[in-house]
Amino acid sequence: MAAQNNNMEFIIMIITAVILLIPLGYGVVSLASSNDTQPFIEKPDEKYDKCVRDTEYMRLNHMDLLKEIRDDAMRRGKRGEITLNDCRKCHTSRERFCDKCHNVVNAQLDCYGCHYFPK
């Protein structure tokens, strides 16, 4: 009787462990099956020479830079060398550049209600 009880406990333990590990396994499998976890971003147009900051900085901090420019222009009246209009000289399309990543991470942009950027 006692031996059977031990057996039951062992089985329940294994089932629980399997259930707990399902999400982890799912993640590992989906990660392994999809080759490109990062969205592919195109190179900007031929006119492109150099961005205002290096690629690594822009990838992580472009939103902070944009907010800085915005506050300078809006609050301090400093319309410097960088503007959102300048961005669209190289990054010519919203779909090809902004939306590529923003759709993946599901970040909704509301810049384009007021600022012109071609689709």
Partner: peptide
């Protein structure tokens, strides 16, 4: 309407 693309319009 958006005649002046260099300037913003209001949402």
């Amino acid at each position: 309407e958006w005649p002046n693309k260099d300037n913003t319009r209001s949402s």
